[in-house]
């Protein structure tokens, strides 16, 4: 087979694309209003990291995997792309929250280096356990003084919601039980 023929074969349209076009129907009257269906960006594309640097983001991803692992057909932080979502959310947040996250991630990274001689992104579950000890403290209303503890508690809440409200979670729960789709009454802007 000539090279040109091989390339032509590889680029040929998949079977579905090559299916015969349906018979053309008469278009609706031009004044008819038709409701179109749309999709959200997350349904069709991946978010792009913009806020955290590479080291911070690697630590955030690792933290997400530790906080919300996948289980029993339910997505975890990875499947829900929760770290990428939080990169977007924290990047839009007030400075105080950005600082909490940035300093928290750096503190985690530094603690992992000091204790285990490696990046937080590379620690095992067992190695991470002492670093995440504040998450095993009983709940109190007042935020802890330690900024790392404050960050970990905030990140736990945020990862939980980012996973629970993700498209991955909605897909996993669809058909499992009523009310699992997270439907709510949305108020559109009045004007």
């Amino acid at each position: 087979m000539k090279r040109r023929t091989i390339l032509g074969s590889a680029l040929s349209l998949p079977a579905a694309w090559a299916a015969p076009a349906p018979a053309q129907t008469a278009p609706p009257p031009a004044e008819t209003a038709v409701k179109l269906a749309f999709d959200s960006p997350e349904a069709a594309a991946a978010g792009v990291r913009r806020f955290f640097d590479e080291t911070e983001f690697a630590a955030l991803e690792r933290l997400g995997r530790l906080l919300i692992p996948s289980a029993e057909g339910l997505p975890g932080a990875v499947e829900a792309e929760a770290a990428l979502f939080l990169d977007f959310l924290i990047g839009q947040s007030p400075a105080e929250r950005q600082t909490l996250y940035r300093e928290g991630l750096r503190a985690l990274h530094a603690a992992a280096r000091q204790r285990w001689g490696k990046a937080f992104a590379a620690v095992s579950d067992e190695e991470a356990a002492p670093l995440l000890a504040p998450l095993r403290q009983a709940w109190t209303r007042s935020a802890p003084h330690d900024p790392l503890a404050r960050f970990l508690l905030a990140a736990k809440d945020d990862f939980w919601q980012a996973v629970a409200n993700s498209r991955a979670q909605a897909r996993a729960l669809s058909g499992r039980r009523r009310g699992a789709s997270g439907l709510g009454l949305y108020w559109h802007a009045a004007e």
């Binding site: 959200s40 960006p41 997350e42 979502f85 959310l89 839009q92 947040s93 007030p94 929250r97 945020d158 919601q161 980012a162 409200n165 993700s166 498209r167 979670q169 909605a170 789709s181 997270g182 439907l183 709510g184 009454l185 949305y186 108020w187 559109h188 009045a190």
Partner: peptide
Amino acid sequence: DRSLRPVSDLPYRGFGQP
């Protein structure tokens, strides 16, 4: 001005614009 929507379709996954 109101409609039912899944939270996973909202741009901020229910957090709202910070």
